[in-house]
């Protein structure tokens, strides 16, 4: 006869401290993401599906398996499970307003002869950021310019979704003006797919932000939003310095709302446009 013993299977009571540290290290090494030491609940909630998938019973078992095998696939699954991919179209509308009203008109003026512009959505997740920009550029009549938009992320799985340009109803409901939905998407059953004219403006590739970031060339505008928050100061600083190197002279960096206080901005000049804060390469 089973006895109800409260919360016997909770990760907090079960996960051994050395295994907690092992998982922290594993995720940090693979992604740079820092997991604080009071996130037992989060580890449990995110990793139990991986435990089940491996037909194990506990997080301790998972750690043992990780230690005993070299399969990068399992590490990737762990990192994937611990990663937040949340994103939405036109997240932070003030920044898009700044682009539309000030930054892009300036760039258009400067590049009238060349008719070419380049953008980078670093940590693109499923692509909403890169595609929001692509739609905005079309709205501004730049559809026939030579536009390069690169989206990069650490996760191959999320990049596959981004490349498909296909979104759930709940995703196109969020942040996307309905006028753009009507104009740039095709409905496919319950999903919504971006039209080819928008999809072909963006290319996606795998890139770890801790690697050399100059390999992609120079960009006029770089979005690096809602990802630095997961890193430690040292990693942040190194990435910001590298991002500076990936900007064309006078290029702009767009950070997330929680990241504007980032200290390592010696390489940038803080610029306010309307409600938005941007960082111009010095």
């Amino acid at each position: 006869m089973a006895v109800l013993t409260g919360n016997a299977s909770s990760g907090k009571t079960d996960l051994q401290p050395e295994n907690y540290r092992f998982l922290q290290d594993c995720v940090y090494k693979e992604s740079g993401i820092v997991i604080d030491s009071d996130k037992h609940y989060l580890l449990e909630a995110r990793l139990m599906p991986v435990v089940k998938k491996q037909q194990l019973t506990s997080l301790n078992d998972l750690c043992n398996l990780l230690r005993a095998t070299r399969t990068p696939d399992l590490r990737r699954q762990v990192v994937e499970a611990m990663t937040t991919h949340e994103t939405l179209f036109f997240r932070d509308p003030a920044q898009y307003d700044a682009l539309r009203t000030v930054l892009l008109p300036q760039l258009i003026e400067q590049r009238r002869a060349l008719r070419s512009l380049s953008f980078w959505s670093a940590a693109s997740s499923s692509g909403q950021e890169a595609y929001s920009l692509a739609m905005l550029l079309r709205e501004m009549g730049l559809g026939d310019w030579s536009i390069r938009i690169v989206g990069t992320d650490l996760s191959e799985q999320i990049l596959d979704r981004a490349r498909a340009g296909k979104f759930l109803q709940i995703e196109v409901n969020r942040g996307l003006p309905v006028s753009y939905l009507v104009k740039y998407f095709n409905r496919q059953g319950l999903d919504w797919q971006l039209k080819e004219e928008v999809r072909r403006m963006v290319t996606f590739q795998k890139l770890d932000l801790r690697d050399n970031l100059r390999q992609l060339g120079a960009f006029d505008v770089v979005f690096c939003r809602n990802v630095l928050i997961y890193f430690d100061q040292q990693t942040k600083k190194r990435i910001l310095e590298q991002l500076r190197g990936a900007l064309a002279p006078g290029g702009h960096l767009l950070l997330g709302g929680a990241e504007t206080g980032v200290s390592a901005v010696d390489w940038f000049e803080r610029v306010s446009i309307g409600q938005a804060v941007l960082y111009r390469a010095r």
Binding site: L88, I170, R174, G175, V178, V182
Partner: peptide, 28 residues
Amino acid sequence: MMTALEAGANEYVMKPFTREIIEDKLRL
């Protein structure tokens, strides 16, 4: 959606929605 826009609606939310969806649309 097109009919609603032509009639003069400013935005459009499909049910079911979440609080975030409403907030993000109001922000727009």
